[in-house]
Simulated assay, not measured.
Amino acid sequence: MAFSELIGQNEAKKRLGVSLTGEPGHAFLLVGPSGIGKKTLGREFAKGLLCSHPTENGACGSCPGCHYMQAGTHPDYKELLLPQGEKNIKVADVRSMILSDVGIMSQIAERKVYLIDADGLAEEGQNALLKTLEEPPKHVVFILTVSDESKLLPTILSRTVSIRLLPNTEEEVKEAILRRNPDTLPEEAQLFARFSNGVIGYALNLCESNWLINDWEEVTDLILRMPEISRTELLTEVYSFFDEEKDHFRDILSLMSMVYDEMAICATDSSSVCLHGEEKKDKMVTVIRKNHLDVQKIGKCNAILTTAAKAHKANGNFEIIVCRMLLALKKENMNG
């Protein structure tokens, strides 16, 4: 797999590709949220560093080094990752897998490459690695990944070339979903892509669960029925839905905001493409017209959701937050 086969992250791939055609630095830091593809890109970069004939597009894919990497048996490549269920990588593992190994010359490639999950390094682990980063052997390249640079010591940051991975476009995420799961319905892939905020790994995880599709339909029907729902039903049956989905509350608020965003688009252009399909879009347009909903009123609904999200983040009383939100939304959605 060359860089061109990886979806998105063109700027990061370009910078790493330039390093492959010259003399690479000794330490790189890939920064981005969980699921953005840091380790995938890091492994492809490592493959290029250990390749006999790399180009700006990455490894050649056909030399012995590439075959070893594809098989997961390259003797000059090691990964230090956070073990599942652990909070931090043990300092002993840093010493045994990295520090005691860097002084040994490479076996088949010109250099040795280490991919390190820096999110798993506590301060003690970072300090253990620091001296090697300060005075690295010439034949060693480190690739660190981290979700947030603030997790790392300034001395670590100063000795690495930082490359930030940016959110992918909605179409890039959709392409990744359909490439991995070709049986996914296009409209579902579009929903996963939009909800993922540009993080391919998160979108792929969503494909493995039914909750998003189910809650998407639930909140859409709720919003479209809002003008007709009684206060009693809101505070009993509708509240029960939010109570049952308490663990996904902020996700549900995001879904509701997406529905209102679509309503705002339909309010200005009823011929626009809708994630819900034509039948649901027609119902949405009918509700908008019947209840005289315009962009301003729909914007107030999104503001109500934002207020609820902030209150929930501040650990406010869940029942009060939900009931106030539902009553406020009811007021804004009423025919007026």
Rank of each mutant, 00 (worst) to 15 (best):
Met1Ala: 14
Leu6Tyr: 13
Asn10Val: 14
Glu11Gln: 12
Ala12Arg: 05
Ser19Ala: 15
Glu23Gly: 09
Pro24Gln: 05
Pro24Leu: 03
Pro24Gly: 02
Gly25Phe: 05
Pro33Thr: 10
Ser34Ile: 00
Gly37Ile: 05
Gly37Ala: 11
Leu41Glu: 08
Arg43Lys: 15
Gly48Leu: 06
His53Glu: 11
Thr55Trp: 01
Glu56Tyr: 02
Asn57Thr: 06
Cys60His: 12
Cys60Ser: 12
Cys63Tyr: 10
Cys66Tyr: 14
Gly72Glu: 01
Lys78Val: 01
Lys87Phe: 03
Lys90Ser: 11
Ala92Phe: 08
Gln107Ala: 13
Gln107Gly: 11
Asp119Leu: 03
Gly125Trp: 09
Leu129Pro: 04
Leu133Tyr: 06
Glu134Trp: 03
Pro136Lys: 06
Thr145Ile: 06
Thr145Trp: 02
Ser158Gln: 07
Ser162Leu: 09
Ser162Tyr: 00
Leu166Trp: 04
Leu166His: 08
Asn168Asp: 03
Glu170Lys: 11
Glu171Gly: 02
Lys174Phe: 13
Asp183Tyr: 13
Gln190Ile: 01
Asn197Leu: 02
Leu204Glu: 04
Leu206His: 05
Trp211Ser: 05
Ile213Asp: 01
Glu217Pro: 00
Thr220Gln: 06
Leu224Ile: 02
Arg225Asn: 04
Pro227Trp: 11
Leu235Met: 14
Leu235Lys: 08
Glu237Tyr: 04
Val238Pro: 00
Phe242Arg: 05
Asp251Lys: 10
Ile252Glu: 01
Leu253Phe: 09
Leu255Arg: 01
Val259Cys: 03
Tyr260Ile: 15
Glu262Gln: 13
Ala264Phe: 00
Leu275Phe: 10
Gly277Tyr: 11
Ile288His: 06
Arg289Ser: 12
Gly299Leu: 09
Ile304Val: 14
Arg324Ala: 09
Met325Gln: 05
Met325Leu: 12
Asn333Glu: 02
